[in-house]
Simulated scan of single mutants.
Amino acid sequence: MPSDADIRSWTLHCGVPDQAADLIATARGIDSAYVEWRRIERPGLKHAQESIRPLFERTRRFRMYQSWVVPGLLQTPAYTKTVLETIVKLRGAIDDVEDAVAVRMDRQRVLHTGHHRFAVVIEEWVLRSVIGDAEVMAAQLGQLIAVATTPAISLGIIPLGTIRGGGWPTESFTIYDDAQVNVELVSAHLTVTSPGGIAEYARAFTELESLAVYGAAARALVIAAITSLG
């Protein structure tokens, strides 16, 4: 592997010293940038949940976009249990779901310390996708209404039928401060640490949050989703 000094010398020689920071970040993260879920979850789902605890504790500003499911930090125990049980079935992970749920619920303490800020944007169809059953989903939607009143959390929902400009639906991702981006792919977990890559996701988040509705309008969408459950 080239050293940081090697990369700086090479980019200077090529007349593009401004690209050094991105290339250094890429080189440093080459082994961890793209990791298959099976590798991450091989020691168990509890271990996978515990492994990201330090990242959550040191991050002060979270920007989250979810196009699949409700973000983990806002999930109820029953909703999390259903999601993790599905992972066990689909990916053959170790079935330590109960322990993994407990770890994820404990991690939600960061919502209330006063040291962190959370900007969350989700697509309305996440509210309409029934995870578990109607009872599990109704409780989860009720939880969204409750957490939206937390001072540290800004919850935005992009309504169905919104005319999309630059804020196209994309893979789910979280931006941790300006230090890294974690992206959820079907088969793997992607970590972006290059300044240029982080900036791309930051721009995408800005576009997406501009399409979302907040406050009473967001609550109305959640309530409508609860009503649709019958």
Rank of each mutant, 00 (worst) to 15 (best):
S3D: 04
P54S: 05
Y201I: 11
G166T: 03
L229A: 04
A212M: 06
E200G: 06
P17I: 10
T227G: 04
M64D: 09
G165R: 12
A139R: 15
Y65N: 05
P159N: 01
W168H: 13
A202S: 15
E36D: 11
R42E: 14
V88P: 10
Q19N: 09
A216E: 09
L111P: 06
F173N: 02
A78H: 13
V103I: 12
S32W: 05
I24E: 06
G167W: 05
V136Q: 06
S172A: 15
Q108C: 05
R128G: 05
M105V: 14
L90Y: 10
R104C: 08
R63L: 01
P151C: 08
G156R: 06
E124V: 03
E123M: 15
L190S: 08
D177L: 00
A225C: 11
E50N: 08
D96I: 12
G197P: 10
I163D: 05
A179G: 13
A152R: 01
P169I: 15
G92Y: 03
V101D: 02
R117W: 00
A119V: 09
P71M: 03
P159A: 01
I131P: 07
D6T: 13
I158R: 00
P159I: 01
A199Y: 07
S129T: 06
I24Q: 07
C14N: 07
F173D: 03
L160M: 11
V88K: 13
T80P: 02
W125C: 11
D99Q: 15
M1E: 07
Q19V: 00
I145Y: 00
G29I: 02
V136E: 09
V147Y: 03
T227S: 15
F56K: 06
G197D: 06
K89M: 05
C14L: 08
I223G: 06
A21E: 15
K89T: 13
P2F: 11
I131H: 02
S129K: 14
